[in-house]
Design a protein around this nucleic acid. Sequence first.
DNA 1: GTTAGCACTCCTATGAACCGAGTGCTAAAT
DNA 2: ATTTAGCACTCGGTTCATAGGAGTGCTAAC
Lengths: 345, 345
Amino acid sequence: MLLTDRQLLILQVIVDDFIRSAQPVGSRSLSKKEEISFSSATIRNEMADLEGLGFIEKTHSSSGRVPSEKGYRYYVDHLLSPKRLNQQDITTIKSIFAERIYEFEKIIQRSAKILSELTNYTSIVLGPAASINKLKRIQIIPLNKETAIAIIVTDTGHVENRTFHLPPAIDPSDLEKTVNILNERLTNVPLEVLNDKIFKEVAMLLKQHIHNYDFLLYGIAEAFKMPVSEKLFFGGKTNMLSQPEFHNDISKIRSLLNMIEEEDRVFDLIRKNPIGINVKIGRENDISAMENCSLITATYSAGKENLGTIAILGPTRMEYSRVIGLLEFLSKDLSSLLSKLYQTR
Amino acid sequence: MLLTDRQLLILQVIVDDFIRSAQPVGSRSLSKKEEISFSSATIRNEMADLEGLGFIEKTHSSSGRVPSEKGYRYYVDHLLSPKRLNQQDITTIKSIFAERIYEFEKIIQRSAKILSELTNYTSIVLGPAASINKLKRIQIIPLNKETAIAIIVTDTGHVENRTFHLPPAIDPSDLEKTVNILNERLTNVPLEVLNDKIFKEVAMLLKQHIHNYDFLLYGIAEAFKMPVSEKLFFGGKTNMLSQPEFHNDISKIRSLLNMIEEEDRVFDLIRKNPIGINVKIGRENDISAMENCSLITATYSAGKENLGTIAILGPTRMEYSRVIGLLEFLSKDLSSLLSKLYQTR
DNA sequence: GTTAGCACTCCTATGAACCGAGTGCTAAAT
DNA sequence: ATTTAGCACTCGGTTCATAGGAGTGCTAAC
């Protein structure tokens, strides 16, 4: 079932207008728009058809029309005019990279902040997955007789640390030997296979050199076992409060903010998106708290390696065009910066 | 100006009742309470006096009374019955310490979470000031030709890391020598005087041993310069949304949540409190977003050393008695645990 | 000093009346 | 065969009056 050009035009104008005003759009106000040259009665007929097809809805029997999720979906897929970013936005985004910063985290944190300020929505950035990074160095620093800290440094400059138990009365030189072996064997190994390698290769070696090696090995393996997971960064967590659709519905706000606080659920939401730009509208997100929200994600990478995701969470009545533009632009910039950094490592 | 016993009783019952119900308290409903044996007319007279003295207020000319900030203050200072914790609460708090955990942060994070769940308010915990901790070990790990990571481990097991620039074409053995000197000279030095010592003592030594020492020194000092600040942990950030006083006032919620997101302001709020339990009511907090909120803080320590603060942020209509009980209990437990940990280090 | 009684105040809920924005349908115009 | 003008109708929102209830302050009696 194809829509006529006129229906497309009307759908587009309805969505655009509603995104701007947050008010149901009536036939008369539509007929006054420049781009529309036919009468309100015609529009009413077309709107009735569009409603029949499920692209728009009424909030009550004599109200104007509002886009449905299907309507937004069609709009995003077919009608979106890829709005050029304005110079202001470009300058602001470029400013993220103005300072020379060597820590990913800082850059990513700033990206999140600036994205949320530009859009007045909530931004979410999934940091680079540490697990594909490679080990640069392991250090073990005993704190006291019982415990020690294991510090892992990756080739990207990421530092992780864990506290673990030491075997009783361990010889300091044994510890040193162990660290040497670990570094020798595990340098440049991706973090995600670290644990595997420890048991397959390192265990053997330790057995030969270290008295009572198994307790120590167990401690170290334990320390590295927890998934070295990606970090989430947020910007404008409370921006949703200023969206008019939530003004009379504290419970919606509450469930949304609660979801944001429960990082696990945000992880799921963000991580399973495909490479490139992706738009999920309302219930497409499969989370009841997101019923009136859309999520736009964009992945960034270094070289061919996909690293993480930046996302904007806003109401379904979101400025899709602008947000997509911003995300495209930022993800490209992030990728090229990271590619450079990765190259020189 | 002293209040009569009867006025005290009435004030107390009004505050207690309002804390429970969030509804203005009328003379008739008061007269029905068990602990009150006189008529509603008498109560009305007393209430008029209490209002004249500024302890209670009307929301409109024919409404029941509501405690004023002054009324809460008097209640907290003089009327609070130090409610014993119930067994349930005690068990829950004890459970924070059930697992043997060696990282402060974990314990503190759990404390924040559990406090907020017990109270349904927002909890804020200021972690131990890293600056009074002593240096255990410094490690420097070069990432590439230009940059390196400095890792600082404290005697409490806290790990900090910073990226900094390396001098061009630095000799690896020089770097090693430097690290040795740093560890030799700076071990057991409190972090807050680290920078001082670097310039006063280490600079001299480096000068003697290392070619081109000043660039390196500068980089290292730079890396340690940023204040190693205390960390904030939150629990139940969105709990305020369920307080009825905010239900019709999104803007209040917004400014409150915004304040919470701006950690700097929370820092100021929390840090400047005296040792022990402290209650700040409404505008006593000097922050407009906190107008309808109270903050109760409790410090915790290890031995004589004051370490940090746990706090509960709730509406002025807060269960002062219970919250104070919980905070007292938890801060005592935290302190004794930390004292033990500190002792064995 | 305490209390009963009463007039008064003000909030809240309810419902009627009305307006305006918007629709659907029909019939006329193009 | 489309498009448009016209019109009856619907429904949410606002305004207004009304009634009820919770509460107060005051006065006079206990």
